[in-house]
Design a protein around this nucleic acid. Structure first.
Lengths: 325, 325
DNA sequence: AAAATATGCACAAACGTTTGTTCATAAAAA
DNA sequence: TTTTTATGAACAAACGTTTGTGCATATTTT
């Protein structure tokens, strides 16, 4: 068609015309022909040769959780801007699934992985990194492991939320936590306990074991069984909060009249709940953008001095916390 | 390592041992060695040769919309079960983005595409199909085009919702619609108008032009400006409904005391809103599963007799519609 | 005018598999 | 024993690019 060799075409289309001194005329011929024929290069062949796949992977625990869906959306959009395609995997909060996904992804020569690890194991993740594939953790991460991460300052978030409750006169507070094996959860526990201790308060308890609706529902039911009900509940995720609200509603407990509620994670809907819910909002957009920046730097072998970052959360006060006494 | 040829290894690992009569012993050797060396085949090379990429694509208008996130999640999980990897793209409700994505995906030799088309153009989609890549539309689709689709029976959904309002004594109803270029929207309009006409009601109007929060907000504001306020509003999506609620709240209009509200699309949160919202719930899970089944059949060149399906929606009554007069 | 240099492009190897074919050897049939 | 058939595994081409190298031809320098 162009009567030019394959290599010439390849170089022009890859913008290496100058480097290989392809004449202007030839370039135009190639570009024209490519348009006319609607030529799309075969990525597989290209990648096979070049080793670059133009593909990144994102593993999150559940696309159904709006918090993660939000992250996925942001990351997806950011990476497209950089001309990467992203494969989104749903580990379903299941360690085995996560491991299998990573295996599969490795076979697809992904250039990097952004992951919200779903458990406390990290060997498989570290192994991937050892193969030279950059990894960045978001939201959940591993302290003392030299994998870059971007997350919220969970300690501070929990600390502030708890203090807010305390300032409003609450002395008996219950926490419903998520997965105990996750670092953010641990830090939230620490932040909560710290605030309570500093205030000299001892009437608190932490229960729960999962970032799920069910966990929130069940634990709240349990809390409501007891004689001595708390004046406030602090849930560690939006899913837990929803379960909690369901249980409270079933037992005819009013928020915040009977029990105050504050939660981690924001969502547009929270404004429209029967009682608009106060929360600790994580900087999802910035977390996503920074994670993308990290992975991109690593792919390009750029050194990044600081690669373990905690961003400040924002407390959004609505009307789910009552001032008492 | 195994002292066997590459081809033998390939065949064993691809389960074609029997077909090519590879001895049991050799098979074991290969499998052992593969394990020991943690061998992962290079998909690019494999796909280059075989033409099969093991990759499907999903294009949706916005991951941030819980309705689509839900679909994405379901489809993702279903396709993983079939050993496919799925690339999720966010067209951002933008036609140009959608076209570009399709181009990019084609270059990646996807074996099929499931898409929620974001506009009224379909040439680029048809072109993809003409290249031999199976396409299935979900939610939004094109009538009179022979591309398979799975969606909700939007006419019936709107018809039933409207009738429900009418049965509750509403005579002055306003609709806030989404993108007029989409088939589901058109059918919802039809369903709504049909129900009104059949009831002999003439006091209705349809406004709006987008499945967005802002559209819902703005149109509601406009509606509230008028002298003659409707007794009920019917929004055509969850996003529109949220915008509508915000506007109503700002103007101190109570649901359902002052104005009743019913919407398309369900969401767990709807139960916990200040006024739990009645809705037409789309069978998301079934839509997703059927779409996967369609695309899988087409990939395997199986004939499917019926490939354009509308599934029945479910009306979920909560408490946002008042009985009047 | 000859030599040196710059310019433009094609050749061919390589990437890591898959797969049709061939070839050797072992077992079965004649 | 010889011929036929079954069994097992290697050979080599091909997939569609990328990229190092080399060979002309054109241009500049001496």
């Amino acid at each position: 068609m162009t009567e030019l060799s394959i290599s010439t075409v390849s170089r022009v289309l890859n913008g290496k015309a100058k480097q290989y001194r392809i004449g202007i005329k030839s370039q135009q011929k190639v570009i024209e022909a490519a348009k006319k024929l609607q030529y799309v290069p075969n990525h597989f062949a290209a990648n096979l040769k070049s080793g670059r796949s133009g593909t990144l992977a994102l593993i999150i625990p559940s696309l159904n959780n709006p918090f993660f869906a939000n992250i996925a959306s942001e990351i997806n959009i950011e990476l497209r801007k950089l001309d990467y395609i992203v494969i989104i995997s749903d580990s379903n909060e299941n360690m085995e699934t996560e491991k299998k996904e990573i295996q599969q992804l490795a076979a697809r020569n992904i250039e990097g992985l952004i992951i919200v690890p779903c458990g406390d194991q990290w060997i498989h993740i570290k192994e991937l990194e050892n193969k030279g594939i950059p990894v960045v953790c978001i939201d959940r991460y591993f302290e003392n492991l030299d994998i870059p991460y971007v997350s919220t300052d969970n300690f501070e978030g929990a600390f502030r939320a708890t203090n807010y409750l305390i300032e409003n006169g609450h002395k008996h507070i219950r926490c419903i936590q998520g997965s105990q094996s996750s670092t953010p959860n641990r830090l939230r526990v620490d932040g909560f306990c710290d605030a309570m201790k500093k205030a000299g308060l001892k009437n608190y308890e932490i229960s729960g074991n999962n970032f799920t609706f069910e966990n929130g529902y069940l634990e709240t039911k349990l809390i409501l069984q007891k004689e001595n009900k708390p004046t406030a509940i602090f849930t560690f995720s939006n899913t837990i909060a929803m379960g909690c609200i369901k249980a409270l509603r079933e037992e005819n407990i009013q928020i915040p009249k009977d029990i105050s509620l504050i939660t981690f994670d924001d969502h547009p809907y929270l404004d429209y709940l029967s009682t608009p819910l106060s929360c600790i909002a994580q900087p999802v957009s910035n977390i996503s953008k920074m994670a993308v920046q990290f992975i991109y730097s690593k792919i390009q072998n750029q050194q990044i001095d600081i690669s373990q970052v905690l961003l400040k959360p924002e407390m959004k006060l609505r009307s789910s916390v009552n001032k008492i006494n």
